[in-house]
Design a protein around this nucleic acid. Structure first.
Lengths: 349, 349
DNA sequence: TTGTAGGCGTTATCAG
DNA sequence: CTGATAACGCCTACAA
């Protein structure tokens, strides 16, 4: 069965190319190309003719061929650790919106918190012609950084601003933020603290947050090592398990700090199931301020991070970089506490 | 400043090409290409030599060029209405996992529930060489369908199985599912129902769910038009607003059905803020069974949809289609009620 | 088993 | 303002 024609009588299953359009319009391929890319460089009459042919044939430029020839794709890539929860959704949304105003398309990949997978994703995105990349946090394999440098791909690190990291980053100081939050917890009179964190080995944000809590304890004259720590993967259930486990100790914490809101939501849920009242029996705090934090009962007192601002600024910076602007500066944004209901004074024992 | 050399003394800022590798290894480009794509067709000795050169130069194939020449990208695309909440996350995850086992990469785009935007995304993905597409629901512009047909792009529609739709789809019957859920609500003695739905104009799932509720009412001898309906965009707050508005009526509903869990979560939250107890004062049901449904207090009685199964099956079907298997059949999956706490008997008045 | 060479669909450089 | 024509980086018959 040979390619024939569609029901409308037009040639159908041949994907029209520039050349088809050119022939159809009686001009050269170069002219068609110009019509599409810099319409002002061709006279109205020809332009109309060409545009007509384009419509007639249902022509759409082949992106791959274009990228190959033009060495620019107007596509940026973003690699986030996970799409499973909303932690990065809002920031990414803002990133995309800002890119949109510059006519740039966004490709998203998720690494499942695996540096090796992230490395693959970076290569895949770059191989696809991504002009620039948005990355989350500083921790990644040296190979990835080496690859990025060698290919001279502009990239920015979001969700983390660390004063001592050399790379271009836009975000907040995770360590400092958690230190501030922990101080508040301590000011409520809590002395036995618990800390539930995501795996820290390859996650500088999680590490920073943990260290921030330790900082605050030390400041307060408490021994950081007295803090009960549970490390667990993301997830409501996981957070709950860690919490339950922690509360089974002879002298359980009176306040449990969670490295993120998902974990905190899990802890709160489990507390309820265990018959504990939050914050009367135990205080729980979160981090990130995703929608979940407001929904849960009691609502989570958490650290609000500037999701949208990070996304928007990252886009601006990257666009600038691609247009040859001198490499911008890292940008520190503010995170601030959102007071809600899950943190209260220590219970009298 | 001219391209010089990196710290390791190797040429650096030139992106290595097949030809570079070939020269470096003392073979032809064809051989290098074979080493990468069908290693078994080249003897060990040469292969090692080539692989060494590849590593040495940090070579990574240019995807666009490859796609251009091979006319196959091993890339599928998925366009979902939103990434802002978790509704599609789990299914997409499963889709991606299944594709991964076939060596296929996934590109994701989100349409913000706009058919026009979706049309753009489809074209963008196809222009980028997507071999196949995952789409959500049946509603989209005729242009989009026409484009897909003309380019002969395999695609499958997920999240919706409608017996009377001709296109290949994998999902559940939204209408039937909501009808079942509504029946249960009615069996609890509720007669004044409220319905909060996402915009139905360009969303067949939302429409189906609404109709299902009407079906059940009619079955039950109730007038479907007596149901209070509020249509609102996705979002916790929006759901809350719709709920509050609805409850302000002289004879407010005793049970409010929500088109999805996000809306239901908003309703529950607002109910609490209004001093209403769920389900004693008013029952609320959701749809989708995303994580949120379990977290909220009270936990939402909702319709569980086969997220992962839809994702996995869609991937299998699409892979088959790309390998020239005869076009598969649409597949209806089951949705079933998850009983939790937000639905109870009608209050005595 | 390996090399040669043509072509994939665009863009960009130069003449005309 | 428009038309040849040479890249772009890779794949794949076809030959050797």
């Amino acid at each position: 069965m040979k390619p024939q024609s569609a029901e409308n009588g037009k040639p159908a299953d041949v994907v029209p190319t520039l050349e088809d359009v050119a022939r159809h319009a009686g001009v050269s391929t170069a002219t068609v190309s110009r019509c599409l890319n810099s319409p002002e460089r061709v006279v109205e009459r020809t332009r109309l003719k060409v545009l007509h042919a384009v419509r007639e044939l249902g022509y759409a430029p082949n992106f791959n061929a274009r990228a190959l020839a033009a060495k620019r794709t107007n596509t940026f890539g973003a690699i986030i650790p996970t799409m499973e929860n909303a932690i990065f959704a809002k920031g990414l949304q803002a990133f995309q919106e800002e890119l949109g105003t510059h006519g740039i398309t966004l490709l998203v990949a998720s690494s499942s918190y695996s540096p090796d997978l992230e490395n693959d994703q970076v290569r895949a995105l770059v191989a696809r012609g991504a002009d620039a990349l948005l990355l989350i946090g500083h921790d990644r394999t040296p190979e990835t950084y080496a690859f990025l440098e060698r290919r001279k791909i502009p990239y920015v690190i979001a969700w983390a601003y660390a004063p001592d990291e050399p790379r271009l980053s836009i975000g907040f100081d995770n360590r400092q933020a958690m230190r501030v939050l922990t101080r508040k917890v301590l000011e409520f009179g809590h002395e036995r603290l618990g800390f539930i964190t995501a795996p820290r080995a390859t996650n500088d944000r999680a590490r920073g947050r943990y260290q921030g809590a330790c900082d605050a304890m030390a400041e307060h004259g408490l021994d950081p090592t007295s803090m009960t720590v549970r490390e667990t993967t993301y997830g409501i259930e996981e957070g709950g398990d860690a919490f339950e486990d922690m509360m089974a100790a002879p002298a359980p914490p009176t306040a449990v700090l969670c490295g993120n809101d998902v974990l905190a939501a899990g802890a709160i849920k489990r507390a309820r199931e265990m018959g504990l009242t939050v914050p009367q029996d135990v205080s729980i705090t979160g981090f990130d301020d995703i929608e979940l934090a407001e929904i849960v009962t009691p609502a989570i007192t958490t650290m609000h991070v500037p999701h949208r601002e990070m996304g928007r600024r990252s886009a601006e910076l990257l666009v600038g970089l691609c247009n040859g602007e001198p490499t911008g500066r890292s940008l520190e944004l503010e995170a601030s506490i959102r007071w809600r209901e899950s943190l209260g004074p220590v219970a009298r024992s």
